[in-house]
């Protein structure tokens, strides 16, 4: 009887723990969705200069992978990287501030939407040249080996990146030197405006890992728990000195490539199909099945929504940079 009671208690404790974790993941994904929705609105209000690339629909990839990292690990991402930087723990107000070019933005207004960087949380940068950050990630990972720490380096990129030379140079070197790198390809089916099948002669991008002697794993990128399981394995492998992994996370970009793209190239019904598999909807459903009190989920959604709006208001109130600031930090 005692043993049974203990087992039951353990189940309850584990359930509660996984519940809490599920809610934490949901909160982060809601924050990213909220920020991206606001950035989209800010654009129409003329608050964002140049262009911006949003990641609605892809939140589970960034949140799932980054949930497996610890302090001392590093992350790089692309210009579609607001989500990844938030997933590492950057503050939403500093993200908004940077996107608006404010002095208190993450990069003092010098980077903008495409270059969100917060080294303090391990977010080593968002890069606007497709593929450029993959070799840099290899270097970050190499440094962990050279310095003898157990840090790993994660790199997010899109399906389009797998066709650029830097991808191949980076994966080759990463594997040759057995660096603790994790390459996460967010296959959202489109490279800018072009469907993947019109630019790439293979369907499974993870197959490219075989050329470089590393595991290539495919995962449902809209299922945050599946992403976590896959990433945990890759991270463990990297920490154990067994080298890099290529993860292909299947997901979907719910919006156009950038601000000027209405995404008219989508076949009819495709968006609706993927919206039905929205990663936030899937996680909420899962949590509801797992007897999370629906009131808690509703409360959490409201809290996150308020926090995002408050962060936005704070960032809006910040001043522009001093004009002299443009001369700073060309050199150290």
């Amino acid at each position: 009887m005692a043993a049974e009671r203990t087992a039951a208690t353990r189940r309850v404790v584990e359930k509660t723990k996984s519940d809490e974790r599920g809610l934490e993941l949901l909160a982060k994904m809601l924050e990213i969705r909220g920020v991206e929705d606001e950035v989209q609105r800010m654009f129409t209000q003329g608050l964002v200069r140049g262009t911006t690339h949003l990641c609605q629909g892809q939140e589970a990839v960034a949140v799932g992978v980054c949930a497996t990292l610890k302090q001392g690990d590093s992350m790089t991402c692309t210009y579609r990287g607001h989500g990844a930087v938030l997933a590492m723990g950057a503050q939403a107000d500093a993200v908004f501030g940077e996107i608006m070019g404010k002095a208190k933005g993450l990069c003092g207004g010098k980077g903008g939407s495409m270059h969100l960087t917060d080294v303090a949380v391990g977010a080593y940068g968002a890069f606007a040249i497709v593929g450029a950050h993959l070799p840099i990630t290899v270097g970050l990972a190499f440094a962990s080996r050279y310095l003898g720490d157990d840090g790993v380096s994660v790199c997010f990129f899109g399906d389009g990146t797998t066709n650029i030379g830097a991808f191949h140079e980076a994966l080759n070197l990463a594997s040759l030197w057995k660096t603790p790198a994790i390459f996460v390809c967010e296959n959202n089916l489109y490279g800018e405006y072009s469907p993947l099948r019109t630019t790439t002669p293979i369907e499974r991008l993870a197959d490219r890992a075989a050329s470089y002697g590393m595991p290539g794993v495919v995962v449902d990128g809209n299922d945050v728990f599946a992403v976590i399981d896959t990433a945990e394995e890759a991270v463990a492998r990297a920490r154990a000195g067994e080298g890099p992994t290529l993860i292909e996370a299947l997901t979907y970009r719910q919006v156009g490539h950038s601000r000027s793209d209405p995404a008219k190239y989508r076949p009819p019904g495709e968006l609706e199909e993927w919206l039905a598999r929205d990663p936030i909807v899937l996680l909420e459903r899962k949590l509801a099945e797992d007897v999370t009190d629906p009131a808690r989920i509703a409360e959490l959604k409201e809290q996150v929504r308020q926090a995002v709006l408050e962060a936005l208001e704070r960032a809006k109130s910040w001043p522009d940079p001093e004009l002299d600031a443009r001369f700073a930090n060309v050199l150290a």
Partner: peptide, 12 residues
């Protein structure tokens, strides 16, 4: 590209 990028990453 890998040589220069790797050096940048290591220098970080």
């Amino acid at each position: 590209q890998a040589i220069v990028g790797c050096a940048i990453g290591a220098s970080l």
